[in-house]
Simulated scan of single mutants.
Amino acid sequence: MSNTKMAQQMSQAPGFIAALDQSGGSTPKALGHYGIEPGAYSSEQDMFALMHEMRVRIIKSPAFSDHKVIAAILFEKTMDGLVDTMPVPSYLWDKCGIVPFLKIDKGLEAEEHGVQLMKPIPDLNSLLSRAAKLGIYGTKERSVIRLADKNGISEIIHQQYQVAETVLSHQLVPIIEPEVLVQSPEKAEAENILLEELTQGLQKLPGQGKVILKVTIPEKADLYAEFAKHPRVQRVVALSGGYSLDEACIKLKKNHNMIASFSRALMEDLRASQSNTVFDGILKKVVNEIYDASVNKVE
């Protein structure tokens, strides 16, 4: 796989990132929304197999490979799986022209100081080496901010950049994702603190490697727009964070130099019971709407 071509795509190509990375804790909810209830599987292995089938259905849909989706974030079990006979990362890049990323965080600690840090990531170096061999271009690591606590947010960003340094040492590109919850009573204040902490962290980041910043769509439009010009930032992307698709796209259109990296909003209308024609039609409509919000901005 060509990292140079992938880097060019991630830096310049119009489009958005699809987040197909629901992990163990959120898998039953995602399957339930898709129309597969817990009674349909009897083990964790069966559950993940059904989740893989759903993701493969999305990946193989013509709507997913029309060059509007520029990258996809995968759960570890998806990275290790196959589409037909091809490893998923190879299928995404070679067949679809979609850059593969890997979610590496292992969930969240209990809330302290208004934030939830990432749990320790065991065997991180081993995981990153394996991911690189499979053709993964970068990683994603999520933590959560609930309140505008400066100490808590500072701790979140310190941890995020520490993990990012390890990722960069494997010649992979980290997506730093400090999610400010959309229902936070102090969302705007938390975002202002986050802006300051992210800026300071970029200034201290060693080496020359670039990161991708994934943030909640801010209350103040274009709050993060300047990051797109920063020499250490490859792209600024937005998570949907529980907003409906329509609401997320309306908000995203107001933020220049920011593209989508949606998960729930991408898949909210897809169901297991739909025929392939219906499924592909819905996915195409959603892809077009997210692409439009990522590319065509309003003043």
Results as ranks from 00 to 15, higher is better:
residue 126 S to M: 10
residue 62 P to C: 11
residue 158 H to W: 09
residue 85 T to M: 11
residue 180 V to G: 13
residue 140 K to Q: 14
residue 235 R to M: 05
residue 94 D to E: 15
residue 203 Q to M: 15
residue 170 H to N: 05
residue 62 P to V: 11
residue 90 S to E: 15
residue 143 S to P: 06
residue 256 H to Y: 12
residue 78 T to L: 11
residue 188 A to G: 09
residue 264 R to P: 00
residue 210 K to N: 09
residue 142 R to S: 15
residue 288 N to F: 07
residue 135 G to N: 04
residue 52 H to P: 00
residue 41 Y to H: 02
residue 190 A to L: 14
residue 122 P to S: 07
residue 91 Y to M: 14
residue 146 R to K: 15
residue 58 I to S: 02
residue 226 E to Q: 13
residue 48 F to N: 01
residue 83 V to Y: 11
residue 111 E to Q: 13
residue 287 V to A: 00
residue 253 K to E: 12
residue 194 L to Q: 12
residue 121 I to C: 02
residue 5 K to L: 13
residue 52 H to G: 06
residue 278 V to A: 12
residue 295 V to C: 12
residue 258 M to T: 11
residue 237 V to S: 01
residue 13 A to V: 04
residue 42 S to P: 08
residue 61 S to M: 06
residue 4 T to V: 15
residue 216 T to F: 11
residue 227 F to N: 09
residue 260 A to L: 03
residue 212 I to K: 08
residue 150 K to G: 10
residue 15 G to K: 01
residue 231 P to R: 12
residue 87 P to F: 12
residue 66 D to C: 10
residue 71 A to E: 05
residue 105 D to V: 09
residue 18 A to S: 12
residue 41 Y to M: 00
residue 29 K to F: 08
residue 185 P to G: 08
residue 99 V to L: 04
residue 35 G to S: 02
residue 262 F to E: 03
residue 200 Q to C: 07
residue 262 F to K: 07
residue 137 Y to P: 05
residue 240 S to C: 09
residue 96 C to W: 00
residue 234 Q to K: 11
residue 14 P to W: 01
residue 169 S to L: 11
residue 159 Q to H: 12
residue 190 A to S: 14
residue 56 V to I: 13
residue 121 I to G: 02
residue 94 D to N: 15
residue 243 Y to W: 15
residue 8 Q to F: 14
residue 142 R to P: 13
residue 25 G to W: 06
residue 142 R to C: 14
residue 121 I to R: 05
residue 38 P to E: 05
residue 14 P to L: 01
residue 233 V to H: 06
residue 80 D to E: 15
residue 235 R to D: 10
residue 99 V to F: 05
residue 167 V to S: 11
